[in-house]
Nucleic acid binder design. Sequence first.
DNA 1: TACGACTAGTTCGAATTCGAAGCAAGTGAG
DNA 2: CTCACTTGCTTCGAATTCGAACTAGTCGTA
Lengths: 167, 167
Amino acid sequence: MADSPPSLDPVQLGAYFALIEVASLLRHAVEQQLREAGDLSYVQFQLLARLGDAPSGSHRMTDLADGVVYSRSGLTYQAGLLEKAGLVVRGPSADDERSVTVTITGAGRALLGKVLPGHIEVVNSLLLEPLSRDQVEALAGLLTPVRDHMRATPPRSAAPRRRKDGA
Amino acid sequence: MADSPPSLDPVQLGAYFALIEVASLLRHAVEQQLREAGDLSYVQFQLLARLGDAPSGSHRMTDLADGVVYSRSGLTYQAGLLEKAGLVVRGPSADDERSVTVTITGAGRALLGKVLPGHIEVVNSLLLEPLSRDQVEALAGLLTPVRDHMRATPPRSAAPRRRKDGA
DNA sequence: TACGACTAGTTCGAATTCGAAGCAAGTGAG
DNA sequence: CTCACTTGCTTCGAATTCGAACTAGTCGTA
């Protein structure tokens, strides 16, 4: 088994730092645009976008939380805000009595449509503009497997209490 | 000039989403490890890491804030926490009377050294592991220019109010 | 020197965020 | 059926985060 190396080499470090910085800067810029264009936080936008993308326009709370990498309690709070603003509605789930289904409303879609152009504009000018078409493709090709890997890898702290794995 | 397209094509969207998700997931995982290993938040770790990297072991408040993409007031708060914990010290700057210089202490370096192996381990297993050496190189090669571009691009909201317009 | 504009940090209040604890509904073994 | 365990969501309290307002020190220019 590979022992954990004492440090990362410059290239690895460069990739890691650049990734974090790019994400932070992009998020920051997008956040401002969304605030101005539609008084939405980034999380709220992400939630609306995910709902808008879903064929049914709805998702379970838990799936939303996992999707945007957010705490459950945080999602409850945000869902409450969005509901109060009339952008989504919460309702009981069909098959599972304890789960709550969040659905985007017409107003939600309208707002999403209103902020989207500016959002895309920011993403374009900050992230995409300095890259060629091939490079964007390459970037997606690199990050997508990484994301899948991360999604598949169980969180560190979840490990201790393993029930039935060959261990 | 390109007027803003109404939407991004799947590849662009994939790159954008994957980037955000990867960064979120990575940050989340790292945060947990740091909390357990040394009771540090991610920002605090970033600050210590930057200070530890600096030849002098110190930076101005503003440079730190910009470096980690944080608000100034937030940095004041975090610097206070770190100082109270004895990990850094704040002092006046040599040439500029209004700026404050933050310097990492021995204890700060010690803690940094203590949490670093685990940190690297997480970055390795989540971000680097699924990529080949060449791919890591490619990733760094793609993201570094993007970061530089973002750093160079002035924030959106700064532009409009440049001069004393009619207001 | 004096003035106005700007930069560096801090303080303050309000909003957000998370984890722990709690509650209700589903699941499985006996 | 019933008990123990798990899952889905909310509530609660504490910590963090940001922006706006404020103080102080710098710079450019007349």
